[in-house]
Structures are given as C-alpha cells and as structure tokens.
C-alpha cells in the first residue's frame, strides 16, 4: 500500500498542523451536532451521563478492532480478515467454554493462539510471498469464513455468566468493557509512542526501503503488526461472544468490522499509505461513528437515508484533511 511516492510528507515542524488536530475537530463537530440535534428535537433526556456512557459503549468491538487495524495501516499494510476472525474466535471461544467457567482460560488461550496464527500467516504471506496485503487478507478472510461455515451454521456453544462480565460488568458507573478499551488504547499508545518497536513501525510505514537501510528488520515489524491486529480482532471476538452470550459465524460480517475498522482508522487521521497517524485519532474515529449512530437514532433518520449520509460522511471526513495534501493518493 505504498502508492504515494509523490511529494515528500509535510515536514513542517512548527505551526498549526491541521492533520494533527483534524480528528479532534471532527469529533468536536460530531459532538456539537449531537447536542444540537438533541436540543432541537426537544429530547434533553438524551444528555444525561448514563446516555453519554451508553454512546461511548456503542462501538467497543469496532474500537478494539480498529486499534489493531491502526498498527497494520501504520506499516502500510491492511487487514481485511478481521471480520471473519472475529466470527471464528467468538464461535471457538463459546464452543470451548460451553457454559463452563473452568473452560474460560483455555478458551481465551485457544482464541488468542488462533489469532496469533492468522496474524503470523497474514504477515508472512505479505512479506515473504510479496502478496499485496489486500489480496492476502481477503483470501485469508475467505478461508477462515469457509472453514468456520463448514462446521457451524448458527450460534454454537455458550458463554458462562462469569465471562459475560466482560461485556455486561460495571465498575461504578462505567462499563468494564469501556475501561478495558481505554486500557488497551493506552497500551497501544505507549507501544507506539515510547518503544523502539513503535518508532520502527512509523519508520517502516513511512519508507520501507529507508527503514531497511537504517537496519530495521522491516519484515519482522510488518509480521508483528499483523499479529497485533489479529490479536485485537480476537479480543473483539471474545467481547462479542460475551455480549451475545454465544458465537455465531456471521457476527463479524454483520458488523462489517473489516471495512468499518479501516474507515475508523482513516477518519482518525492515519494515512492508508502508512507512516503517519496514531491511536487517539482512531479512538476519535470510533467515537465519531458512535455519535453519528446516536444522532441518527435521536433524530429518527430513516435507515436508508442513514446509509446515504454515512457514506458521504466517511468520504467528507477523510477529505477534511486529505484535501489540502498535494500527494497523489492510491
């Protein structure tokens, strides 16, 4: 995904950088629209703390997936297999648990192992065989979905009450899953911002050849990013299994987590060509999606018009900061 060997990236070190603040501006705008719509329709009851928490908690699975997606997009790769992987791990976990609390740990381990394997394969196919990541992960997605549908065609297994705490538990006024998402985002931020691995990711995404000459093991970085992405998808799958009490082979595809997670990451200011962006932008992107959903619900927008608007909003949001760039985009 490096079709932009155009002009060099912006080097302005000082001054106002729209790119940096764009996600926040968009988020502020989305929030202002939400408040405006709520007040305009005279439904002030939607402005309670409870409701704001409910909005924050709307898209947790999407948020977790998007954190992983951020890593692969930063290294100028992409992952279309997350939706199938989410379905696969949700089913795998709920089948292994099958209602028994004792099996929670084995189920989680098995799911994470599956994720690791998928991520590793994705990464190796991309780096080793030189297959375009879009095709590699699309192929992987078909393979996972096919294998999964061969064995199950409906909700399978069940998640014990103890595991449902993940999705339904609360710590004071805050849903546990929301705090978990926050913690995961912090972890990802620390990884990207303060570690060698993090700076390597930006280097590889910015210019793979230069990074290789600088002595970075670029392949390893790409593979690791894919593993992180897949493991995040696994976590999203576990969360959904906990939320839905069971796993079904269609939950990932139904949520369109592959394309939506990419849209969230890009709206958050991470560039598809790699090398620029970050986790907080992605989190802002996720919140924008949640707010859009809520605005539509509050305003009672017809679901078909909703789709039309959503498509336009995605493009407009990306155009908001991309339009100033002089690069030729892929």
């Amino acid at each position: 995904m490096s079709g932009s060997e155009g002009a060099p990236p912006h080097k302005t070190k000082s001054g106002f950088r729209l790119e940096r603040w764009a996600p926040l501006i968009l988020l502020g705008g989305a929030f202002a629209i939400y408040v405006g719509v709520v007040l305009a329709t005279g439904q002030a009851q939607y402005l309670t703390f409870d409701n704001l928490i409910a909005i924050l908690g709307r898209s947790i699975a999407l948020g977790i997936t998007a954190i992983g997606q951020t890593f692969v997009i930063l290294v100028a790769s992409i992952d279309l297999s997350v939706a199938s992987l989410i379905s696969a791990t949700a089913v795998l976990a709920s089948v292994i648990m099958d209602g028994s609390p004792a099996m929670i740990l084995p189920a989680v381990l098995a799911a994470v192992a599956l994720g690791g394997l998928v991520g590793l394969t994705n990464g190796l196919v991309v780096t080793g065989l030189g297959v375009n990541p879009l095709i590699a992960t699309l192929g992987m997605s078909l393979i996972i979905q096919g294998c999964l549908s061969a064995f199950v065609s409906n909700f399978a297994g069940s998640v014990p009450a103890e595991f449902q705490v993940f999705a339904y538990g609360r710590l004071g006024p805050f849903p546990l899953a929301l705090l978990f998402l926050l913690a995961l985002a912090c972890l990802a931020w620390i990884l990207l911002r303060f570690t060698k691995f993090g700076s390597d990711i930006y280097a590889v995404g910015g210019n793979e050849e230069a990074a290789r000459f600088a002595g970075i093991k670029t392949r390893r970085i790409v593979v690791l990013s894919h593993v992180i992405c897949s493991v995040c998808a696994v976590i999203a799958g576990l969360y959904l299994a906990s939320r839905l009490r069971s796993g079904a082979p269609w939950i990932g595809a139904d949520g369109v987590y592959d394309l939506e997670s990419i849209a969230v990451v890009v709206i958050g200011g991470t560039v598809l060509a790699g090398g620029r962006g970050g986790i907080w932008g992605t989190m802002a992107g996720m919140l924008i999606f949640s707010l859009i959903d809520s605005v539509f619900n509050v305003a009672g927008v017809d679901s078909f018009a909703k789709q039309v608007l959503r498509g336009i909003i995605i493009v407009a949001a990306v155009a908001f900061y991309a339009a100033r760039s002089k690069r030729i985009v892929a």
């Binding site: 017809d302 039309v308 498509g311 995605i314 892929a330």
Partner: peptide, 29 residues
C-alpha cells in the same frame, strides 16, 4: 473525490458503495 479531495480510492469508493446502496433503498423504499 480521489483526484481533488485526495481521498484514497479505497475509502472514496467505499463511501460511494455505502451511499449508492442507501440510495437504491431510499429510491425504492
């Protein structure tokens, strides 16, 4: 959108995909 708004075609046409699908439903109810 791709050339002048500089939106990567993956996203631009993804947005178009969602929009057109919505339009098809909207048009026909």
């Amino acid at each position: 959108v791709v050339c002048f708004l500089r939106v990567p075609s993956l996203i631009a046409t993804l947005g178009m995909m969602i929009t057109l699908n919505g339009l098809a439903f909207l048009w026909s109810g």
